[in-house]
């Protein structure tokens, strides 16, 4: 799957990168030489004109990039669901009341107790792929786990209220 990206020089200003979607829509990113960034969404009726452009600061641009990156990653993870028969993927949110909130992943002994595998943790816009037993857990984390249906159900139970 190759994506069409166009790079155009803007003499005296900087560069513009356009991504053209398969549906034919065009999104542009203007990078000023001074470091400012602008996101331009192109008009449907007049494909040469930016219908709107949004100025982005450094941190806003990187937050946007993170969100896009994280959602792409989630999408790819959830894709496993369709590929492996008998196995399911689930996103579980760690509730505030969970005994493991504030601890580390190893505390849950999830693999031994439920035969499921926690493949990633999503915290806000950050994705932690392949977490280790030492990875900290926080209330509100989204835990992405792979396992059998019954295994995932008992994992949800475990995360909510601890073992037994």
């Amino acid at each position: 799957m190759s994506v069409r990206v166009e790079r155009v020089d803007l003499p005296g200003i900087g560069t513009r990168h356009d991504v053209i979607t398969s549906a034919g829509r065009r999104i542009g990113v203007v990078s000023h030489r001074t470091g400012e960034r602008e996101l331009a969404i192109f008009d449907l009726d007049d494909p040469d004109s930016a219908a709107d452009s949004i100025d982005l600061s450094d941190s806003e641009a990187s937050a946007l990039a993170d969100i896009l990156g994280a959602s792409v990653m989630l999408g790819q993870l959830l894709g496993i669901q369709e590929q492996a028969g008998g196995l399911a993927t689930e996103q579980l949110v760690l509730p505030t009341s969970s005994p493991y909130a504030g601890g580390v992943l190893g505390d849950t002994k999830a693999r031994t107790r439920t035969s499921t595998s926690i493949v990633a943790i999503v915290r806000g816009t950050v994705v932690i792929p392949s977490p280790t037993p030492m990875t900290p857990l926080q209330a509100g984390d989204t835990i992405i786990a792979v396992g059998t249906r019954s295994g995932l159900d008992s994992l949800a139970q475990l995360l909510n209220s601890g073992p037994g």
Partner: peptide
Amino acid sequence: LKRLGNRETPTILSILV
């Protein structure tokens, strides 16, 4: 006019250059 992102802008700029 928020036209820096427009596709014709490089044409305008290169004439100026």
